[in-house]
């Protein structure tokens, strides 16, 4: 009986596990293998060079600039996006003035806002990046035109052309593009919190601030944590790459102020023909990601509240 059960379970698992091994595990291992070679990416001819690529990483200023920028994005992007998302979702669902029949409700016109917030999510990343690029155009863009219109002729920054501002400009576009999704996600989470809790809190005289921190946030914690990891991966991964690649000077500039790890991997592989070195950078990106998820899981561990 026992044997039969193993066989039975294994039978179901063989196919998915095989697919997983071929398409997920093997590329991972291959990448690690290639990071020890001098593979160019353009010919099958390669040799193993040991830890040379990793030794080079430590000397590479551009790599460290990229690590710095990626970590900045990783620390700030989730905080800003999730805080804004939570704030908007709270205002849409709970934050409104008390009305006669409902215990809680959103601010006036909240259903319209909900659609508006979700709008950027419908647009593809390159479109959003391009739109922001137009807005940041120092010569005829919306932002500088706005400054001019309100009489601030002296304030005409170069936006993406200024190393002090460039990373913030890219970050602003990423926040704008992603916040809508979290508004919807958190709204869904909030709607599953029983109304009685709010009613009780209100009877006790809690204000909006207290309701949010004592009721909404703790009961939404699981969703926030998921969002945090998701947003962190996004900050390290393809999305950061796409935004920087399309928007920034160079791309990656000016003066490496927007260079991020995925972009550097791309440049080393496809521009410089150094795929071996690029996979070494990729492996270090993997390490950063693992450390990040480890920390988030640990910090976020709380007792699950049943309701």
């Amino acid at each position: 009986m026992k044997h039969g059960k193993y066989r039975f379970i294994a039978g179901f698992l063989v196919l998915p596990l095989a697919i997983y091994a071929i398409f997920v595990i093997s590329p991972f291992l291959q990448a690690i293998y290639y990071s020890f070679t001098d593979w160019t990416g353009l010919s099958p001819d390669l040799k193993v060079v040991g830890f040379d690529n990793y030794a080079r990483l430590f000397q590479d200023e551009v790599f460290w600039a990229a690590v710095g920028n990626s970590v900045t994005l990783l620390l700030l992007l989730p905080v800003v996006t999730l805080s804004l998302g939570l704030f908007f979702a709270f205002m849409l669902n709970v934050g409104g003035r008390r009305r006669k029949k409902a215990v809680i409700g959103g601010v006036r016109g909240s259903s319209t806002y909900k659609i508006l917030y979700f709008f950027p999510q419908v647009l593809s990343v390159p479109i959003v990046a391009l739109l922001f690029q137009f807005a940041y155009n120092p010569e005829s863009g919306a932002l500088n035109a706005f400054f001019k219109a309100i009489g601030l002729d002296g304030v005409q920054p170069d936006w993406l052309g200024d190393p002090q501002l460039a990373l913030w400009c890219v970050m602003a576009a990423m926040v704008w593009a992603n916040v809508g999704f979290y508004v919807v996600l958190f709204s869904a989470g909030m709607s599953s919190i029983p109304k009685d809790f709010y009613e009780a809190a209100l009877l006790d005289g809690a204000n909006r601030f207290n309701t949010f921190f004592r009721i909404t946030l703790p009961l939404l914690w699981d969703t926030v944590q998921t969002g945090w990891i998701y947003m962190g991966i996004l900050a390290l991964d393809v999305s950061a790459f796409a935004f920087v690649q399309i928007m920034s000077v160079g791309p990656g500039g000016p003066d490496y102020s927007t260079e991020v790890l995925p972009l550097y991997v791309y440049q080393k592989t496809f521009r410089d023909g150094q795929a071996g070195y690029a996979t070494a950078i990729g492996v270090s990106l993997l390490i950063v990601t693992l450390i990040f998820s480890g920390i988030v899981m640990r910090l976020g561990r709380r007792e699950r509240l049943e309701f």
């Binding site: 120092p138 010569e139 005829s140 005409q156 170069d158 052309g161 200024d162």
Partner: peptide
């Protein structure tokens, strides 16, 4: 040098130039 040039891409700068700015 045209103000804002450091933030322009090739098409934007060519546009400003073609417009006689």
């Amino acid at each position: 040098v045209l103000k804002g040039s450091p933030g322009l891409d090739h098409l934007q700068s060519q546009k400003a130039w073609a417009e006689g700015k």
